[in-house]
Design a protein around this nucleic acid. Structure first.
Length: 423
RNA sequence: GUGGCCGUAGCUCAGCCUGGUUAGAGCGCCGCGUUGUGGUCGCGGAUGUCGGGGGUUCGAGUCCCCUCGGUCACCCCA
Protein backbone atom coordinates (compact mmCIF):
# COMPACT_ATOMS: atom_id res chain seq x y z
CA UNK A 1 0.00 0.00 0.00
CA UNK A 2 1.18 3.45 -0.75
CA UNK A 3 1.35 6.04 1.99
CA UNK A 4 -1.94 7.76 2.76
CA UNK A 5 -0.91 11.06 1.26
CA UNK A 6 -0.51 9.44 -2.13
CA UNK A 7 -4.18 8.59 -2.41
CA UNK A 8 -6.90 10.65 -4.03
CA UNK A 9 -8.63 12.81 -1.41
CA UNK A 10 -11.75 11.51 0.34
CA UNK A 11 -14.72 11.48 -1.95
CA UNK A 12 -12.68 11.86 -5.12
CA UNK A 13 -11.36 9.27 -7.50
CA UNK A 14 -9.32 8.71 -10.62
CA UNK A 15 -11.20 7.61 -13.68
CA UNK A 16 -8.96 5.40 -15.76
CA UNK A 17 -9.48 3.67 -19.06
CA UNK A 18 -11.57 1.77 -19.95
CA UNK A 19 -14.04 3.45 -17.59
CA UNK A 20 -13.00 6.83 -18.91
CA UNK A 21 -13.96 5.67 -22.40
CA UNK A 22 -17.54 5.47 -21.19
CA UNK A 23 -17.29 9.02 -19.87
CA UNK A 24 -16.02 10.23 -23.21
CA UNK A 25 -18.87 8.48 -24.96
CA UNK A 26 -21.50 9.81 -22.58
CA UNK A 27 -20.32 13.40 -22.80
CA UNK A 28 -19.92 13.09 -26.54
CA UNK A 29 -23.49 11.88 -26.87
CA UNK A 30 -24.72 14.72 -24.69
CA UNK A 31 -22.79 17.44 -26.50
CA UNK A 32 -24.03 16.21 -29.87
CA UNK A 33 -27.65 16.31 -28.77
CA UNK A 34 -27.43 19.71 -27.12
CA UNK A 35 -25.61 21.28 -30.03
CA UNK A 36 -28.22 19.95 -32.43
CA UNK A 37 -30.72 21.90 -30.33
CA UNK A 38 -28.71 25.11 -30.61
CA UNK A 39 -26.89 25.05 -27.27
CA UNK A 40 -23.26 26.15 -27.32
CA UNK A 41 -20.50 25.01 -24.99
CA UNK A 42 -19.52 27.22 -22.07
CA UNK A 43 -16.32 26.63 -20.14
CA UNK A 44 -16.46 28.61 -16.94
CA UNK A 45 -13.91 28.69 -14.12
CA UNK A 46 -13.97 25.95 -11.55
CA UNK A 47 -13.94 28.55 -8.78
CA UNK A 48 -15.58 31.93 -8.31
CA UNK A 49 -15.79 34.61 -5.70
CA UNK A 50 -17.81 33.02 -2.99
CA UNK A 51 -20.57 35.59 -3.35
CA UNK A 52 -21.50 34.13 -6.72
CA UNK A 53 -22.41 30.84 -5.15
CA UNK A 54 -24.01 32.32 -2.08
CA UNK A 55 -26.75 33.54 -4.41
CA UNK A 56 -28.10 30.00 -4.62
CA UNK A 57 -29.49 30.62 -1.16
CA UNK A 58 -28.02 31.47 2.23
CA UNK A 59 -30.27 28.92 3.83
CA UNK A 60 -29.34 25.97 1.62
CA UNK A 61 -27.16 23.09 2.77
CA UNK A 62 -24.80 23.78 -0.10
CA UNK A 63 -24.05 27.28 1.13
CA UNK A 64 -24.31 26.62 4.85
CA UNK A 65 -22.02 23.65 5.17
CA UNK A 66 -20.90 22.09 1.90
CA UNK A 67 -18.86 24.78 0.18
CA UNK A 68 -15.15 24.28 -0.49
CA UNK A 69 -14.09 27.86 0.16
CA UNK A 70 -10.60 29.27 0.58
CA UNK A 71 -8.61 32.45 0.55
CA UNK A 72 -6.08 32.89 -2.24
CA UNK A 73 -2.71 34.59 -1.95
CA UNK A 74 -4.32 37.91 -2.83
CA UNK A 75 -6.78 37.65 0.03
CA UNK A 76 -9.79 36.94 -2.18
CA UNK A 77 -12.47 34.73 -0.71
CA UNK A 78 -13.13 32.07 -3.34
CA UNK A 79 -15.02 28.80 -3.53
CA UNK A 80 -14.96 25.75 -5.77
CA UNK A 81 -18.11 25.46 -7.82
CA UNK A 82 -20.77 23.52 -5.89
CA UNK A 83 -23.35 23.50 -8.72
CA UNK A 84 -23.58 24.58 -12.33
CA UNK A 85 -26.14 27.34 -12.64
CA UNK A 86 -24.59 30.15 -10.60
CA UNK A 87 -21.39 30.28 -12.67
CA UNK A 88 -23.31 30.37 -15.92
CA UNK A 89 -25.54 33.18 -14.72
CA UNK A 90 -22.49 35.09 -13.51
CA UNK A 91 -20.98 34.71 -16.99
CA UNK A 92 -24.24 35.95 -18.52
CA UNK A 93 -24.23 39.02 -16.32
CA UNK A 94 -20.61 39.71 -17.14
CA UNK A 95 -20.81 39.35 -20.92
CA UNK A 96 -24.47 40.22 -21.56
CA UNK A 97 -24.76 38.03 -24.64
CA UNK A 98 -27.80 38.22 -26.90
CA UNK A 99 -30.81 36.31 -25.75
CA UNK A 100 -32.00 33.72 -26.03
CA UNK A 101 -28.68 32.49 -24.72
CA UNK A 102 -28.61 28.70 -24.76
CA UNK A 103 -25.55 26.92 -23.43
CA UNK A 104 -24.40 23.50 -22.32
CA UNK A 105 -21.55 22.53 -20.03
CA UNK A 106 -19.71 19.50 -18.69
CA UNK A 107 -17.96 20.38 -15.49
CA UNK A 108 -16.94 19.11 -12.07
CA UNK A 109 -18.75 20.26 -8.93
CA UNK A 110 -17.44 20.16 -5.40
CA UNK A 111 -19.33 19.72 -2.18
CA UNK A 112 -17.96 18.90 1.24
CA UNK A 113 -20.25 15.97 2.05
CA UNK A 114 -19.78 12.52 3.47
CA UNK A 115 -19.34 10.22 0.47
CA UNK A 116 -21.57 7.23 -0.13
CA UNK A 117 -22.96 5.28 -3.06
CA UNK A 118 -23.46 7.76 -5.88
CA UNK A 119 -22.26 10.71 -3.84
CA UNK A 120 -18.82 12.25 -4.04
CA UNK A 121 -16.99 15.38 -2.99
CA UNK A 122 -16.10 15.94 -6.59
CA UNK A 123 -18.79 14.93 -9.01
CA UNK A 124 -19.44 15.80 -12.62
CA UNK A 125 -22.45 17.39 -14.15
CA UNK A 126 -23.53 17.82 -17.70
CA UNK A 127 -26.26 20.33 -18.17
CA UNK A 128 -27.83 23.21 -20.04
CA UNK A 129 -29.03 26.70 -19.21
CA UNK A 130 -31.26 28.89 -21.38
CA UNK A 131 -31.63 32.56 -20.53
CA UNK A 132 -33.99 35.21 -21.79
CA UNK A 133 -37.11 33.19 -22.55
CA UNK A 134 -40.39 33.28 -20.63
CA UNK A 135 -42.25 30.93 -22.95
CA UNK A 136 -43.44 27.70 -21.35
CA UNK A 137 -42.35 25.94 -24.52
CA UNK A 138 -38.78 26.55 -23.41
CA UNK A 139 -39.49 24.63 -20.22
CA UNK A 140 -40.82 21.83 -22.36
CA UNK A 141 -37.75 21.95 -24.59
CA UNK A 142 -35.32 21.81 -21.68
CA UNK A 143 -37.15 19.01 -19.93
CA UNK A 144 -37.44 17.02 -23.13
CA UNK A 145 -33.72 17.39 -23.82
CA UNK A 146 -32.96 15.78 -20.48
CA UNK A 147 -35.62 13.13 -20.95
CA UNK A 148 -34.49 12.23 -24.47
CA UNK A 149 -30.87 12.11 -23.40
CA UNK A 150 -31.59 9.43 -20.81
CA UNK A 151 -33.60 7.53 -23.38
CA UNK A 152 -30.75 7.66 -25.88
CA UNK A 153 -28.34 6.33 -23.29
CA UNK A 154 -30.60 3.30 -23.02
CA UNK A 155 -32.11 4.00 -19.62
CA UNK A 156 -35.72 2.94 -19.42
CA UNK A 157 -36.52 3.22 -15.75
CA UNK A 158 -36.49 7.01 -15.40
CA UNK A 159 -39.25 8.91 -13.62
CA UNK A 160 -39.83 12.59 -14.27
CA UNK A 161 -41.10 14.45 -11.21
CA UNK A 162 -42.57 17.88 -11.85
CA UNK A 163 -43.77 20.78 -9.73
CA UNK A 164 -44.36 24.51 -9.86
CA UNK A 165 -43.29 26.77 -7.02
CA UNK A 166 -44.96 29.99 -8.15
CA UNK A 167 -43.28 33.36 -8.51
CA UNK A 168 -42.83 36.59 -6.50
CA UNK A 169 -46.46 37.48 -7.17
CA UNK A 170 -48.12 34.42 -5.70
CA UNK A 171 -45.45 32.85 -3.52
CA UNK A 172 -45.38 35.25 -0.56
CA UNK A 173 -49.02 34.62 0.27
CA UNK A 174 -48.47 30.91 -0.14
CA UNK A 175 -45.40 30.96 2.11
CA UNK A 176 -47.41 32.69 4.82
CA UNK A 177 -50.04 29.98 4.63
CA UNK A 178 -47.45 27.24 4.72
CA UNK A 179 -45.56 28.82 7.60
CA UNK A 180 -48.77 29.17 9.56
CA UNK A 181 -49.53 25.52 8.98
CA UNK A 182 -46.05 24.48 10.11
CA UNK A 183 -45.88 26.77 13.09
CA UNK A 184 -49.17 25.39 14.35
CA UNK A 185 -47.47 22.01 14.63
CA UNK A 186 -43.95 23.17 15.34
CA UNK A 187 -43.30 20.54 17.98
CA UNK A 188 -43.86 17.74 15.48
CA UNK A 189 -41.12 18.87 13.09
CA UNK A 190 -37.65 17.32 13.11
CA UNK A 191 -34.85 19.09 14.97
CA UNK A 192 -33.26 20.44 11.86
CA UNK A 193 -36.36 22.06 10.41
CA UNK A 194 -38.11 23.28 13.53
CA UNK A 195 -35.97 26.46 13.79
CA UNK A 196 -36.45 27.28 10.11
CA UNK A 197 -40.13 26.61 9.65
CA UNK A 198 -40.96 30.29 9.68
CA UNK A 199 -38.15 31.78 7.57
CA UNK A 200 -37.87 29.03 4.96
CA UNK A 201 -40.95 26.85 5.15
CA UNK A 202 -40.51 25.28 1.71
CA UNK A 203 -37.36 23.59 2.90
CA UNK A 204 -39.53 21.51 5.19
CA UNK A 205 -41.64 20.27 2.31
CA UNK A 206 -39.09 17.88 0.93
CA UNK A 207 -37.73 16.69 4.26
CA UNK A 208 -37.75 12.91 4.21
CA UNK A 209 -38.12 12.40 7.95
CA UNK A 210 -41.32 10.77 9.03
CA UNK A 211 -42.07 13.50 11.56
CA UNK A 212 -41.89 16.29 8.99
CA UNK A 213 -43.71 14.27 6.38
CA UNK A 214 -46.57 13.77 8.74
CA UNK A 215 -46.89 17.50 9.25
CA UNK A 216 -46.56 18.37 5.56
CA UNK A 217 -48.92 15.70 4.29
CA UNK A 218 -51.92 17.98 4.59
CA UNK A 219 -49.97 21.21 4.18
CA UNK A 220 -51.09 23.69 1.53
CA UNK A 221 -49.64 22.87 -1.90
CA UNK A 222 -47.99 25.44 -4.16
CA UNK A 223 -49.93 24.36 -7.20
CA UNK A 224 -53.23 25.16 -5.48
CA UNK A 225 -52.15 28.75 -4.88
CA UNK A 226 -50.51 29.82 -8.11
CA UNK A 227 -51.38 33.18 -9.61
CA UNK A 228 -53.02 33.09 -13.01
CA UNK A 229 -49.82 33.56 -15.11
CA UNK A 230 -47.99 30.87 -13.14
CA UNK A 231 -50.95 28.58 -13.37
CA UNK A 232 -51.24 29.02 -17.13
CA UNK A 233 -47.50 28.55 -17.54
CA UNK A 234 -47.65 25.28 -15.64
CA UNK A 235 -50.68 24.15 -17.64
CA UNK A 236 -48.86 24.74 -20.89
CA UNK A 237 -45.86 22.75 -19.74
CA UNK A 238 -48.01 19.80 -18.88
CA UNK A 239 -49.78 20.06 -22.19
CA UNK A 240 -46.44 20.25 -24.02
CA UNK A 241 -45.02 17.23 -22.23
CA UNK A 242 -48.17 15.35 -23.10
CA UNK A 243 -47.79 16.29 -26.75
CA UNK A 244 -44.23 14.94 -26.71
CA UNK A 245 -45.33 11.73 -24.97
CA UNK A 246 -43.20 12.44 -21.93
CA UNK A 247 -44.90 11.02 -18.85
CA UNK A 248 -44.43 12.87 -15.60
CA UNK A 249 -45.35 12.54 -11.96
CA UNK A 250 -46.80 15.60 -10.29
CA UNK A 251 -44.75 15.88 -7.11
CA UNK A 252 -46.10 18.73 -5.02
CA UNK A 253 -43.31 18.40 -2.48
CA UNK A 254 -40.52 18.90 -4.98
CA UNK A 255 -38.88 22.11 -3.78
CA UNK A 256 -35.24 21.21 -4.46
CA UNK A 257 -32.26 22.47 -2.58
CA UNK A 258 -31.70 25.89 -4.10
CA UNK A 259 -33.61 29.03 -3.26
CA UNK A 260 -33.45 30.57 -6.73
CA UNK A 261 -36.11 28.42 -8.32
CA UNK A 262 -39.34 29.99 -9.55
CA UNK A 263 -42.25 28.27 -11.22
CA UNK A 264 -40.99 25.02 -12.75
CA UNK A 265 -38.91 22.50 -10.87
CA UNK A 266 -38.24 18.96 -12.02
CA UNK A 267 -36.15 15.98 -11.11
CA UNK A 268 -35.26 12.78 -12.95
CA UNK A 269 -35.03 9.70 -10.81
CA UNK A 270 -33.59 6.33 -11.80
CA UNK A 271 -35.78 3.71 -10.22
CA UNK A 272 -33.20 1.04 -11.07
CA UNK A 273 -30.93 2.53 -8.40
CA UNK A 274 -32.02 0.96 -5.15
CA UNK A 275 -29.83 3.20 -3.01
CA UNK A 276 -31.01 6.54 -1.73
CA UNK A 277 -29.08 8.44 -4.38
CA UNK A 278 -31.45 7.92 -7.26
CA UNK A 279 -31.77 11.50 -8.49
CA UNK A 280 -29.78 11.46 -11.73
CA UNK A 281 -30.80 14.89 -12.91
CA UNK A 282 -32.77 17.92 -11.92
CA UNK A 283 -33.44 21.52 -12.67
CA UNK A 284 -35.97 24.23 -13.10
CA UNK A 285 -36.71 27.84 -13.82
CA UNK A 286 -34.92 30.72 -12.06
CA UNK A 287 -36.47 33.91 -13.32
CA UNK A 288 -35.03 36.13 -10.60
CA UNK A 289 -31.45 34.91 -10.45
CA UNK A 290 -29.92 37.15 -13.12
CA UNK A 291 -31.35 40.21 -11.42
CA UNK A 292 -30.13 38.95 -8.07
CA UNK A 293 -26.62 38.90 -9.54
CA UNK A 294 -26.93 42.45 -10.71
CA UNK A 295 -28.08 41.89 -14.29
CA UNK A 296 -31.17 43.12 -16.04
CA UNK A 297 -34.28 41.09 -15.18
CA UNK A 298 -33.91 37.97 -17.33
CA UNK A 299 -35.68 34.63 -17.03
CA UNK A 300 -33.72 31.40 -17.02
CA UNK A 301 -34.21 27.66 -17.12
CA UNK A 302 -31.86 24.70 -16.99
CA UNK A 303 -30.92 21.32 -15.66
CA UNK A 304 -27.91 19.36 -14.45
CA UNK A 305 -27.31 15.65 -14.89
CA UNK A 306 -24.92 13.72 -12.68
CA UNK A 307 -22.45 11.72 -14.74
CA UNK A 308 -21.50 9.31 -11.96
CA UNK A 309 -25.08 8.52 -11.06
CA UNK A 310 -26.13 8.21 -14.67
CA UNK A 311 -23.41 5.62 -15.22
CA UNK A 312 -24.46 3.81 -12.04
CA UNK A 313 -28.00 3.70 -13.37
CA UNK A 314 -26.63 2.36 -16.65
CA UNK A 315 -24.88 -0.42 -14.72
CA UNK A 316 -28.11 -1.21 -12.90
CA UNK A 317 -29.96 -1.44 -16.20
CA UNK A 318 -27.05 -3.14 -17.99
CA UNK A 319 -26.93 -0.52 -20.72
CA UNK A 320 -24.37 1.85 -22.22
CA UNK A 321 -21.37 -0.51 -22.10
CA UNK A 322 -17.76 0.51 -22.57
CA UNK A 323 -17.37 1.23 -26.28
CA UNK A 324 -15.17 -1.14 -28.28
CA UNK A 325 -11.56 -0.30 -29.01
CA UNK A 326 -10.95 1.95 -31.96
CA UNK A 327 -7.56 0.38 -32.57
CA UNK A 328 -7.16 -1.02 -36.03
CA UNK A 329 -3.75 -2.61 -36.02
CA UNK A 330 -1.05 -4.01 -33.75
CA UNK A 331 2.44 -4.19 -35.24
CA UNK A 332 4.43 -7.26 -34.30
CA UNK A 333 8.09 -7.06 -35.09
CA UNK A 334 10.45 -9.84 -34.05
CA UNK A 335 13.37 -8.51 -36.10
CA UNK A 336 14.52 -5.88 -33.65
CA UNK A 337 11.78 -3.28 -33.80
CA UNK A 338 12.87 -0.75 -36.40
CA UNK A 339 10.17 -1.82 -38.84
CA UNK A 340 7.57 -1.50 -36.07
CA UNK A 341 8.92 1.93 -35.24
CA UNK A 342 8.63 3.20 -38.78
CA UNK A 343 5.45 1.40 -39.79
CA UNK A 344 3.45 2.42 -36.72
CA UNK A 345 4.41 6.07 -37.22
CA UNK A 346 3.48 5.91 -40.91
CA UNK A 347 0.11 4.36 -40.12
CA UNK A 348 -0.66 6.98 -37.49
CA UNK A 349 0.26 9.74 -39.90
CA UNK A 350 -2.29 8.19 -42.24
CA UNK A 351 -4.88 8.33 -39.48
CA UNK A 352 -4.92 4.64 -38.59
CA UNK A 353 -5.07 3.66 -34.91
CA UNK A 354 -2.08 1.44 -34.26
CA UNK A 355 0.01 0.21 -31.34
CA UNK A 356 3.04 -2.03 -31.02
CA UNK A 357 5.04 -3.70 -28.31
CA UNK A 358 8.44 -2.66 -27.09
CA UNK A 359 11.50 -4.32 -25.62
CA UNK A 360 11.82 -6.95 -28.34
CA UNK A 361 9.48 -9.51 -26.82
CA UNK A 362 8.88 -12.98 -28.22
CA UNK A 363 6.41 -13.60 -31.02
CA UNK A 364 4.12 -15.34 -28.60
CA UNK A 365 4.19 -12.46 -26.14
CA UNK A 366 3.57 -9.91 -28.85
CA UNK A 367 0.65 -11.92 -30.23
CA UNK A 368 -0.92 -12.06 -26.77
CA UNK A 369 -0.54 -8.32 -26.42
CA UNK A 370 -2.05 -7.81 -29.84
CA UNK A 371 -5.01 -9.94 -28.92
CA UNK A 372 -5.66 -8.07 -25.69
CA UNK A 373 -5.19 -4.67 -27.27
CA UNK A 374 -8.52 -4.94 -29.02
CA UNK A 375 -6.92 -4.29 -32.41
CA UNK A 376 -8.55 -5.86 -35.43
CA UNK A 377 -5.40 -6.83 -37.27
CA UNK A 378 -1.90 -7.95 -36.43
CA UNK A 379 0.79 -6.75 -38.82
CA UNK A 380 3.56 -9.28 -38.45
CA UNK A 381 7.16 -8.75 -39.39
CA UNK A 382 9.46 -11.71 -38.92
CA UNK A 383 12.74 -12.62 -40.61
CA UNK A 384 10.91 -13.97 -43.68
CA UNK A 385 8.90 -10.81 -44.15
CA UNK A 386 11.94 -8.66 -43.60
CA UNK A 387 13.74 -10.55 -46.32
CA UNK A 388 10.81 -10.47 -48.73
CA UNK A 389 9.92 -6.86 -47.99
CA UNK A 390 6.39 -7.80 -46.93
CA UNK A 391 4.12 -7.73 -43.89
CA UNK A 392 1.82 -10.57 -42.83
CA UNK A 393 -1.60 -9.08 -42.19
CA UNK A 394 -3.50 -11.30 -39.79
CA UNK A 395 -7.16 -10.91 -38.93
CA UNK A 396 -7.46 -11.18 -35.16
CA UNK A 397 -11.23 -11.08 -34.93
CA UNK A 398 -12.66 -13.03 -37.84
CA UNK A 399 -11.74 -16.20 -39.67
CA UNK A 400 -10.06 -14.49 -42.59
CA UNK A 401 -6.61 -15.84 -41.69
CA UNK A 402 -3.59 -13.93 -42.84
CA UNK A 403 -1.99 -12.80 -46.07
CA UNK A 404 1.19 -11.08 -47.22
CA UNK A 405 1.22 -7.45 -48.30
CA UNK A 406 4.20 -5.60 -49.73
CA UNK A 407 5.67 -3.30 -47.10
CA UNK A 408 5.24 -0.21 -49.28
CA UNK A 409 1.54 -1.01 -49.74
CA UNK A 410 0.72 -1.69 -46.10
CA UNK A 411 -0.38 1.81 -45.17
CA UNK A 412 -2.85 2.00 -48.05
CA UNK A 413 -3.98 -1.58 -47.51
CA UNK A 414 -4.61 -1.23 -43.78
CA UNK A 415 -6.20 2.15 -44.33
CA UNK A 416 -8.70 0.48 -46.62
CA UNK A 417 -9.31 -2.33 -44.11
CA UNK A 418 -9.96 0.26 -41.39
CA UNK A 419 -12.64 1.91 -43.48
CA UNK A 420 -14.26 -1.27 -44.73
CA UNK A 421 -13.86 -3.75 -41.90
CA UNK A 422 -14.61 -2.08 -38.63
CA UNK A 423 -17.30 0.43 -37.97
C1' G B 1 -21.97 16.32 11.22
C1' U B 2 -24.03 11.16 13.33
C1' G B 3 -24.10 5.72 13.00
C1' G B 4 -23.09 0.31 11.02
C1' C B 5 -19.47 -2.63 8.40
C1' C B 6 -14.51 -3.16 6.33
C1' G B 7 -8.88 -2.22 5.38
C1' U B 8 -4.11 -9.08 3.92
C1' A B 9 -0.39 -9.72 -3.43
C1' G B 10 -2.30 -5.45 -9.51
C1' C B 11 -7.88 -7.12 -8.51
C1' U B 12 -11.59 -10.13 -5.46
C1' C B 13 -11.00 -12.36 -0.98
C1' A B 14 -9.63 -16.65 2.93
C1' G B 15 -6.72 -16.61 7.48
C1' C B 16 -8.17 -13.11 12.91
C1' C B 17 -13.12 -15.54 17.22
C1' U B 18 -9.61 -20.22 20.00
C1' G B 19 -2.06 -15.29 19.24
C1' G B 20 3.41 -19.35 17.68
C1' U B 21 7.85 -22.52 12.22
C1' U B 22 9.26 -19.64 5.25
C1' A B 23 1.09 -15.58 5.15
C1' G B 24 -2.63 -18.40 1.26
C1' A B 25 -6.46 -19.03 -3.02
C1' G B 26 -8.79 -17.47 -7.54
C1' C B 27 -8.27 -14.00 -11.43
C1' G B 28 -4.57 -11.02 -13.74
C1' C B 29 0.73 -10.63 -14.97
C1' C B 30 5.57 -12.99 -16.71
C1' G B 31 7.93 -17.46 -18.86
C1' C B 32 7.54 -22.29 -21.18
C1' G B 33 4.66 -26.18 -24.06
C1' U B 34 11.02 -28.06 -30.09
C1' U B 35 10.62 -26.12 -36.10
C1' G B 36 8.16 -17.53 -35.94
C1' U B 37 1.52 -16.76 -34.57
C1' G B 38 -3.01 -14.73 -29.91
C1' G B 39 -7.85 -16.07 -28.04
C1' U B 40 -8.77 -22.64 -25.10
C1' C B 41 -5.71 -25.91 -22.20
C1' G B 42 -1.33 -27.62 -19.33
C1' C B 43 3.28 -26.66 -16.54
C1' G B 44 6.30 -23.21 -14.02
C1' G B 45 7.35 -18.23 -11.84
C1' A B 46 7.33 -13.22 -9.58
C1' U B 47 4.82 -9.75 -6.27
C1' G B 48 2.90 -8.47 0.03
C1' U B 49 6.57 -2.71 5.17
C1' C B 50 -1.15 -8.15 6.46
C1' G B 51 -3.55 0.76 5.93
C1' G B 52 -0.39 3.69 9.70
C1' G B 53 1.13 4.48 14.93
C1' G B 54 1.24 2.90 19.88
C1' G B 55 0.31 -0.98 23.57
C1' U B 56 -0.24 -6.16 25.80
C1' U B 57 2.91 -10.61 25.25
C1' C B 58 8.66 -14.65 25.31
C1' G B 59 6.01 -14.04 20.50
C1' A B 60 0.62 -10.21 16.89
C1' G B 61 -1.98 -10.33 10.20
C1' U B 62 -4.43 -12.50 14.61
C1' C B 63 -5.84 -9.24 21.26
C1' C B 64 -6.44 -3.64 23.07
C1' C B 65 -6.22 1.80 22.08
C1' C B 66 -5.53 5.80 18.67
C1' U B 67 -5.36 7.40 13.72
C1' C B 68 -6.05 7.49 8.48
C1' G B 69 -8.78 5.49 4.53
C1' G B 70 -12.82 2.79 2.18
C1' U B 71 -17.93 1.47 2.16
C1' C B 72 -23.12 1.77 3.35
C1' A B 73 -26.99 4.60 5.72
C1' C B 74 -29.23 9.34 7.80
C1' C B 75 -29.48 14.66 6.16
C1' C B 76 -29.28 16.77 1.43
C1' C B 77 -28.30 16.51 -3.41
C1' A B 78 -26.09 15.02 -9.30
Amino acid sequence: MSSPSMKAPTGTRDILAPESDRWKALIGLFSGQMERAGYGLVQSPMFEEIGVFQRVGEDTDVVRKEMYDFEDKGGRHLALRPEGTASIVRAFVQHHPQTPWKVWYAAPSFRYERPQAGRFRQHHQIGVEALGVDDADLDVEVISLAWDFFASVGLRRIDLCLNSLGDPVCRPAYLDMLAAHLVARLDDLCDEHRPRARENPMRVLDCKRASCREVTRDAPRTIDHLCRPCSEHFERIQEGLGALSIPFILDTRLARGFDYYTRTTFELQASALDGAQNAVGGGGRYDGLVEMMGGAPTPGMGFGIGVERTLLACDAEATFPVPPSSLVAFVIDVTGGTVARDLSAALRRAGVGVVRSFDDRSMRAQMKQADRSGASFALIIGPDELEAGTVAVRDLRGETGQHAVALEDVVAHVGALAKGGRQ
